[in-house]
Amino acid sequence: MKHLDVLHEIKNNDIKPVYLLYGEESYLTRQVEEAIINAILGPDERDMNLTIFNQDPSVQDLTGMIETIPFMGGKNVIVVRGTALLKARKGNTDSEEQRAGGNDDLLIKTFSNMPEYSHVVLSTTEKVDKRRKLFKIIESGGRAVEMLPLKLNDVKGWLNGKLTALNKKMAPDAIEHLLGALSLMPQISLGFLDNELEKLALYSSGKVITLRDAEQVLASIPEVSVFAMIDALSQKQTGKALELLNEQLAAGDHPLRILALLVRQVRMLWQAKELGAQRLDSKTLAALLGVPPFIGEKIVRQSRNFSASALKQALLALAVTDFELKVGKADRTAIEKIIIEMCI
Score class of each variant (00 low, 15 high):
Leu289Phe: 07
Gly64Met: 11
Glu341Val: 12
Gly23Lys: 09
Ser140Asp: 02
Gly73Trp: 04
Leu134Ile: 13
Ile209Gln: 03
Leu50Trp: 13
Tyr22Ile: 12
Lys16Ile: 09
Leu261His: 07
Asn195Met: 13
Gly91Leu: 07
Thr29Ser: 15
Glu297Asp: 07
Met170Val: 03
Arg264Ile: 04
Leu193Ser: 12
Gly101Cys: 00
Glu139Ser: 15
Phe306Ile: 01
Lys75Gly: 00
Gly161Thr: 10
Leu148His: 07
Leu134Ala: 00
Ala144Arg: 09
Val291Glu: 01
Leu316Asp: 11
Lys168His: 08
Asn195Ser: 15
Leu184Ala: 02
Leu285Ala: 06
Ser123Asn: 14
Ser26Asn: 09
Glu67Pro: 00
Gln216Thr: 13
Gln235His: 12
Ala272Gln: 03
Gly276Gln: 10
Gly142Ala: 10
Ala88His: 04
Pro57Val: 09
Ile339Thr: 03
Ser309Lys: 08
Ser112Cys: 09
Thr68Met: 13
Asp94Lys: 12
Phe192Cys: 14
Asn113Lys: 15
Ala272Asn: 02
Pro292Ile: 11
Thr51Trp: 07
Arg257Leu: 09
Ala277Pro: 01
Pro70Trp: 08
Met229Leu: 08
Arg89Asp: 13
Met185Cys: 10
Ile37His: 00
Glu45Pro: 08
Glu223Leu: 05
Ala330His: 13
Phe227Arg: 00
Ser95Trp: 08
Ser225Trp: 03
